[in-house]
């Protein structure tokens, strides 16, 4: 299996390879030398495990996402081989290229990402690391969430609200005001979540206020 290194992120290297005729990726979590080896090993193992479990969960529980989620082909302590998401670019790349052209398309993207997040949460899963880099958008418009290393199983509205809060914070790095788009995402998310939707949005307000209202003293 010849593998080609295509990306080196903060904690993993992504290789493209051909797996008995299928286009596949290998996601290898490398050793972080700044961490104590024992801690590093434990964290890496738990993240690989979390990712595998999350993908399996969405494949079996979400009607919307089951087809588009990659199939896992092999797993070890520090890497996963899975089918490749082809002809896709990140949510962030899409936002940055579309924002110069039309707001409509960006609004539509945020709306659809709201649906995808609701699917994740309705499956009893918390992503743990929602950012604009962690959604792949295929040419046909299908949205695939990725990077489940920090995911966990929970249906508590607190965890769901924090998940949304993490995404809201990550939008800050785009460098322009996205509050209008995020509001569209939240509205769609709330609708898709059904009954608990409103309580999650209320909880999100509470989470946002925590940083601001907390006493900043030891």
């Amino acid at each position: 299996m010849a593998a080609e290194l295509v990306q080196q992120g903060a904690e993993a290297r992504i290789y493209f390879l051909d797996y008995v005729g299928f286009p596949a990726v290998r996601k290898e979590r490398f050793i972080k030398t700044y961490r104590h080896p024992q801690l590093d090993e434990r964290l890496t193992k738990s993240r690989v495990r979390a990712e595998v479990k999350a993908i399996h969960c969405l494949k079996t529980k979400s009607a919307l996402l089951s087809k588009s989620m990659p199939t896992i082909l092999g797993v070890s302590n520090n890497d996963i081989i899975m089918t490749r998401i082809e002809n896709a670019s990140t949510f962030q790349e899409n936002i940055l290229s579309e924002i110069t052209k039309s707001n409509d398309r960006v609004e539509q993207l945020f709306d659809q990402v709201g649906v995808v997040i609701s699917e994740i949460h309705k499956s009893g899963l918390i992503h743990g690391d929602l950012t604009t880099s962690n959604f792949m958008i295929k040419d046909d418009g299908t949205i695939v969430p990725i990077d489940f290393g920090l995911s966990s199983f929970s249906s508590s509205i607190e965890d769901q609200a924090v998940d949304l809060y993490v995404l809201e914070r990550s939008l800050l790095t785009l460098g322009f005001d996205t509050s209008h788009f995020f509001a569209i995402l939240l509205a769609r998310y709330e609708k898709e979540m059904g009954k608990p939707g409103l309580s999650i949005i209320k909880k999100l307000d509470e989470v946002r206020a925590r940083g601001r209202k907390r006493d900043m003293v030891g």
Partner: peptide, 18 residues
């Protein structure tokens, strides 16, 4: 030497830690 490793339950998130 660390004899054993207590498991502190701390979640590390992308932008917030808890």
């Amino acid at each position: 030497r660390v004899k054993s490793w207590p498991h502190f339950h701390m979640l590390s998130k992308e932008w917030t830690f808890h």
